[in-house]
């Protein structure tokens, strides 16, 4: 009896937590109606909203649609994940394995970056990006965030758990440090790369403040910025609006569900050991 009660409570809570999203998905499959509904089962099932949302907004520039924003986000996210993993793991490798003057200074500098929120540096960052002529470019969206203190820290910690004997053998055979990094360390550190890739994906896909200040051209807007253009629809076209939000929400949710073991594991290691 007590056990049934537990399941009832926990199921109701889970339903309550998911209800905003269930409502969003349901409304996105319903025919547009001016009068809102609190249903979580679609009325007059249709996929029309998705087709319309994908071709929205076409207001200032006919060629710019939701697809443009989506593609921009894919490009920026892909560069930040691939480039970021490379830059962070390179630095993490020498910090984990090598001894050289200033090693600790470099390590603590990486940790110090974690204490500095973007809002504190945003204005000089904006001035630098403007000075470089990067406003409305992919460079502005990618380069400032290619390295992360958290990533360097995570890679350093993970590399230290790999036995050093393999590297020493390669060293005696005359291979360079970069060869050892690329051919010995990287293949052995797949779990660390997996976890960091997912964290970087989530972060890059959902980033908002920085793109907001460095992109003014509608062609360069990433998905999160493009979404704000849907706000004007909140009086009438709820189906179209929720379809757009569902598309934007889908990639992180799918990634999370597939890789959740890595995801929560990495999240906890980072937040609790730090």
């Amino acid at each position: 009896m007590k056990k049934i009660l537990l399941y009832v409570i926990i199921t109701i809570t889970a339903f309550f937590m998911l209800s905003p999203m269930l409502w969003m998905v349901s409304t996105s499959f319903s025919k547009d109606s001016i009068i809102a509904s609190a249903n979580i089962i679609p009325r007059d099932f249709t996929i029309e909203n998705y087709i319309k949302a994908w071709n929205f907004p076409k207001v200032f520039d006919k060629s710019v649609t939701f697809g443009t924003f989506f593609l921009n986000s894919v490009i920026v996210t892909a560069c930040l994940v691939v480039g970021g993993l490379f830059v962070d793991s390179l630095a993490g490798y020498v910090l984990a394995r090598k001894d050289f003057p200033g090693r600790n200074v470099f390590f603590y500098a990486a940790l110090a970056t974690l204490m500095i929120p973007i809002y504190v540096t945003a204005i000089p960052m904006f001035l630098i990006v403007r000075g470089l002529g990067w406003i409305n470019t992919y460079e502005a969206l990618i380069i400032p965030f290619l390295s992360s203190g958290f990533g360097i820290y995570m890679f350093k910690q993970y590399f230290q758990t790999i036995p050093i004997e393999l590297e020493e053998a390669a060293k005696i055979d005359g291979y360079s440090d970069f060869w050892i990094y690329a051919r010995v360390i990287v293949p052995l550190a797949k779990p660390a790369f997996g976890t960091m890739a997912i964290l970087k994906f989530m972060w890059s896909w959902n980033m908002f403040f920085w793109p907001l200040i460095v992109t003014t051209d509608i062609k360069m807007k990433v998905l999160q910025l493009g979404l704000t253009m849907f706000r004007g629809l909140n009086v009438t076209q709820w189906g179209l609006l929720t379809a757009g939000m569902t598309i934007a929400t889908l990639p992180p949710v799918i990634i999370y569900i597939i890789f959740q073991r890595y995801f929560t594991g990495g999240l906890m290691a980072g937040s609790l050991k730090g």
Binding site: M17, P20, N206, T228, F230, M245, V253, Q260, T264
Partner: peptide, 28 residues
């Protein structure tokens, strides 16, 4: 357990912008 944890965790991973816009409809 994994199923329930996933349900509770999904709001964390979704985009703040998207859910904020949905919130505007919910709290219209």
């Amino acid at each position: 357990k994994t199923f329930y944890r996933t349900c509770f965790y999904i709001p964390v991973v979704i985009s703040m912008v998207a859910i904020s816009i949905v919130w505007m409809l919910l709290f219209n």
